[in-house]
Write a protein that binds this DNA or RNA. Sequence first.
DNA 1: CTCGTGGATGTTTACGTAAACATGGACTAC
DNA 2: GTAGTCCATGTTTACGTAAACATCCACGAG
Lengths: 372, 372
Amino acid sequence: MSQGLDEVAPERRSAQEDPGAASAVVEAHVLGEVRPERRRRRVSMADVARLAGVSSQTVSRVANGHPGVVDETRRLVLGAMAELGYRPNSAARALKSGEFRTIGVILFTLSTTGNVRTLEAIASSAAAEGYAITLIPVAVPTQDGVRGAFTRLGELAVDAVILLMEVHLLDAASVSLPPGVQVVVADSDAGDQYSVVDTDQADGTRQAVAHLLDLGHRTVHHLAGPEESFAAERRTAAWRRTLEEAGCPVLPVERGDWSAESGYRAGLRLAADPACTAVFAANDELALGLLRALHESGRRVPEDVSVVGFDDISEAGSFLPPLTTVHQDFAEVGRRCVEGVLRQFRNDEHERGTHLVPTHLVVRRSTGPAPR
Amino acid sequence: MSQGLDEVAPERRSAQEDPGAASAVVEAHVLGEVRPERRRRRVSMADVARLAGVSSQTVSRVANGHPGVVDETRRLVLGAMAELGYRPNSAARALKSGEFRTIGVILFTLSTTGNVRTLEAIASSAAAEGYAITLIPVAVPTQDGVRGAFTRLGELAVDAVILLMEVHLLDAASVSLPPGVQVVVADSDAGDQYSVVDTDQADGTRQAVAHLLDLGHRTVHHLAGPEESFAAERRTAAWRRTLEEAGCPVLPVERGDWSAESGYRAGLRLAADPACTAVFAANDELALGLLRALHESGRRVPEDVSVVGFDDISEAGSFLPPLTTVHQDFAEVGRRCVEGVLRQFRNDEHERGTHLVPTHLVVRRSTGPAPR
DNA sequence: CTCGTGGATGTTTACGTAAACATGGACTAC
DNA sequence: GTAGTCCATGTTTACGTAAACATCCACGAG
């Protein structure tokens, strides 16, 4: 029930009869003689109709579960479908209906937990709605990659698009969204232009910093993400504002690129500062590197230094020590993205505004009272 | 150059004159009179042809870069395209050509590093070839999810399929591959049925176990993955064979579900065994949990116990201590999957056999000489 | 000067589906 | 008994594209 070639269409024709088969040229070159038909013709409604002795419209009705087909006819058609192995042709369907039943997801990378988890939720929500997901990676390395994505978008094989990246990066990638396609954006600040779904990073940050201050720390250092990242900047801004509101000194940030390795390097600098007793890391990987740096510098966590991360990746509870971190509900973000984009598509109206998914602090063992 | 709404065509006409104009629907709605057309008509080649004063075939020729169009005509057509914002309709193109320029990727989950990294490589390789990726998640939770995937597959909106799961699970998910679609499988043993690409897990395991034996350990314990997983079973089998060939005792395995948490629980049992001085964990997450269990049990790594993982996830180098592990080149797996599936598609021939991508041991600091 | 040649462009057609409309037969109401 | 109604099914058409085929014109060779 699940193989490829063995099933050769019975009415396979010779090349003579069908000289137009795609890339027959290549094969002719190799074989030098008869050109096998490149792609066997698919079974269409007409074939089913012929076998069942009905019109193709009746087949269409059966295929789409429309009423008004008498039981016996229906059985006849279903039998013919099964016998021929009929599958509806989604290209024809899309052409007719103008809908692809597909959502495009544009992203730069799958190396961040957030993107992956959001994508996973998007994929299952979309599947539940009968929509497929087309991945549109806008790789930075080669311009070719970008061109590929551009092309697909241009051809508009999607009904709607979810952007898993910051809107302003679109320009950099020279990708333009096709007009008339609805968009929902995650991880951005484009609420005035688009419908944006995001986790409440500012509040998560506030909770994290407040938690550390409550534990008696004089202030909180910040191990930030890369400057280009909007999420990183937002967390940094919220960290700064929380400290200012509490009247605590705001010290210069250390910066990493989200990776554990960069967190380690920046962590070594933080570890060398004896006044540093609490650090808010912009994500869990950075926190992991920081933990290692602190460990190797002989500073105990949480006795000497408290650490809070961001994301609550699945491994966070197994760090040494288990990491206190801000939990983001990526699954909910994904769900809302799909919901939003489909609502826009169905109503054919463009929405704006930002929808925030709450975040909450998960307290584990990497935070403790300030040393005296 | 990169947004949706603001980009309003300069020659914007009223809804009356051209009910098909972009976003006319919204306007009509605002005007509160004519019932808005559900979905605006797209700009087609015919529209471009009319404006340019040529035939639609000429537009087609220009769009596809065919020769035999004089420069002035070409400019005329390109100008009309730009003015109308023409985008080719991929549904029509697919219907005509019989190709979707899309590869389907079927997978259960995005929560394993291997799947994600492989998918990422697949996506960029495919994009470089001008192919899009359609994600087909076969979620276990609801049967609806499975049905959705089934439907999409049935409609065959893909030219080829890459299976990122074990073939035998397909049956369980009651997904059947449509006939005539070429398949490449990763992470399975179905080389007799399909073209399979995988990392050389047996050799990676052998390297890991041999490394530990070389360090003087009497034998190597195994923290295995779930029984249902083929990858887990393969690693376990290779571990057993390597020990047997070296004449070392083969002890019962501890088992986890790939998660760090389960690694921690199993690790507590291993840590309680004073004879246990070397553990081969089936993946890095399990190893992470194991490290934590050992730490909390007061057993030092690597002085008392050596640990080796599998995968070389990006965080592995930042564990405490940095983890010795088997590196898998998922990017190469992804590339070869795309290459293989496109080759099959283009030649219209079904390939079989297993292609292994080499693995290698990355020695960090979680392994050391056996305690005496 | 005429015919042939070849290049540029136009016309026809088919891809598979499904909406819209047409047909024809059975049954009901008067 | 006849007209009207409704239901099952058939026929026509359009969706947008591109291959195949047709046409037309300019130019060169004889």
